[in-house]
Amino acid sequence: MLVLTRKPGEGIVIGDDIKITFIETKGAGIRIGIEAPAGKKIYRQEVYDRICLENREASQWNLADLDMLTSAMVKKESL
């Protein structure tokens, strides 16, 4: 990993189209500004990680699960 030291107001340019500016430190946090093309997806790391994990878990199932759940739901609806 490339590690750089920046002062508030200084920035980093990544490639032709991404600019990151370090705005200020605020308590224990650091406020950063990001300029990137509109279509670029930008996530907070922990949010991205959580959804990755959830998607991965959601891909693990089998047809017996589906049958069982469907039966349970249909039964509930008809009550």
């Binding site: 959804i51 998607n55 049958d67 759940l69 469907t70 039966s71 739901m73």
Partner: peptide
């Protein structure tokens, strides 16, 4: 998300009726 390389999916009906 996490499966950025998979683009094409087919929709499979449930063998039983229901919302899934």
């Amino acid at each position: 998300i996490g499966f950025e390389n998979l683009h094409d999916f087919i929709v499979m009906p449930n063998r039983k009726n229901g919302p899934l």
